[in-house]
């Protein structure tokens, strides 16, 4: 076990930011902390890193209690903050060298590590650039390079893809998976469920400072009753047809809005076939029809009653 968080409580005055939060992160996994903005993800990370004092609870990293002066533990952690934290007065190379130098004293080794980090994030052509000259995506990559250059065992990435273009986002996510393949354990926080689904081996959904579900993405999806979401684009559906549709077996919910018929079905086989038979029988004209498996947003919606991006 790399990280163990037990009953973490953090208050900001009257606001309970973390409510007895507990979880563990195992060696070699990419652990995702998924939750809407303000759910307590960053607070949890700050408490884990001892950047914030917490009211109650325990944090252990590498089996040792984490404290502000636990420098031997900090040496093995790489952190990529939500806000880009680089020096505008230093070039790309100098920034990575500076942050790497806080962990690695050997100059030769550091030079090699910095070069590797630059190549890893694809900033080879921008070594001499100052941060102000970089695009948002390149800046995020620099932020990551500064966090991982010293080859840490545990990498914590706090929303590293906020305001990043799709191309850079893809590179960043690929890079995180590569780091994991190279042996690093990763804690990844985001409110983008697609990203978390894509790269995390285990996910904890967090809301109002509480862990509401933890597991692999399949385990999380298995927790809810929704089995399939079928969408039919149709010009006209009568209220009678809608009622008859709702009466079909496995149909949990059917709604017609903006010329789209959305049918939520429970777990079971042949849901799509049953809907197609119904459409044929009712002679409903349709343009497109497609089926989707539940997402983490559906999981969140079913557990909390609100959208992940509310």
């Amino acid at each position: 076990m790399i990280v163990r968080v037990k009953n973490l409580v953090k208050r900001y005055g009257e606001l309970l930011a973390l409510d007895h939060l507990s979880f563990t992160v195992n060696d070699g996994e990419v652990f995702g902390l998924l939750g809407p903005n303000g759910s307590g993800k960053t607070t949890a990370i700050n408490c884990i890193l001892s950047l914030l004092e917490y009211d109650k609870g325990e944090v252990e990293i590498f089996g040792r209690p984490m404290r502000p002066d636990a420098y031997d533990i900090k040496r093995e952690i790489g952190i990529v903050m939500q806000n880009v934290a680089v020096y505008n007065e230093l070039t790309v190379y100098e920034n990575i060298d500076y942050f790497c130098g806080l962990y690695v004293e050997d100059k030769k080794l550091r030079k090699r590590l910095v070069e590797e980090a630059i190549n890893f994030v694809g900033l080879k052509d921008f070594k001499g650039y100052y941060p102000k000259k970089l695009s948002g995506g390149l800046l995020r990559r620099l932020n990551i390079a500064c966090g991982i250059a010293h080859k840490p065992k545990l990498i914590i990435l706090d929303e590293p893809t906020v305001a990043v273009d799709p191309q850079s986002r893809y590179k960043i996510l690929e890079g995180i998976l590569e780091l994991n393949r190279l042996g690093a354990t990763v804690i990844y926080t985001s409110h983008y469920m697609e990203e978390v689904e894509q790269i995390c081996s285990r996910i904890m959904i967090i809301d109002k400072g509480r862990a509401i579900a933890t597991g692999t993405k399949d385990e999380l999806k298995a927790m809810i009753t929704l089995g399939e979401k079928i969408t039919v684009e149709s010009q006209h559906i009568t209220p009678g047809q809608l009622n008859r549709l709702r009466a079909l077996p496995h149909v949990m919910e059917a709604e017609y809005k903006n010329k789209q018929l959305v049918i939520k079905s429970g777990k079971g086989a042949n849901n799509l076939e049953a809907v197609l038979d119904f459409i044929k029988k009712e002679k409903i004209q349709y343009g497109k029809i497609y089926s989707e498996l539940p997402t983490l947003n559906d999981v969140f919606l079913e557990i909390t009653g609100k959208q992940l991006r509310d």
């Binding site: 890193l49 950047l51 420098y71 900090k74 952190i79 903050m81 934290a85 942050f99 962990y103 500064c146």
Partner: peptide
């Protein structure tokens, strides 16, 4: 905050 995460006191 970033510096506080490092092993430098």
């Amino acid at each position: 905050r970033r510096n506080a995460c490092s092993p430098l006191s």
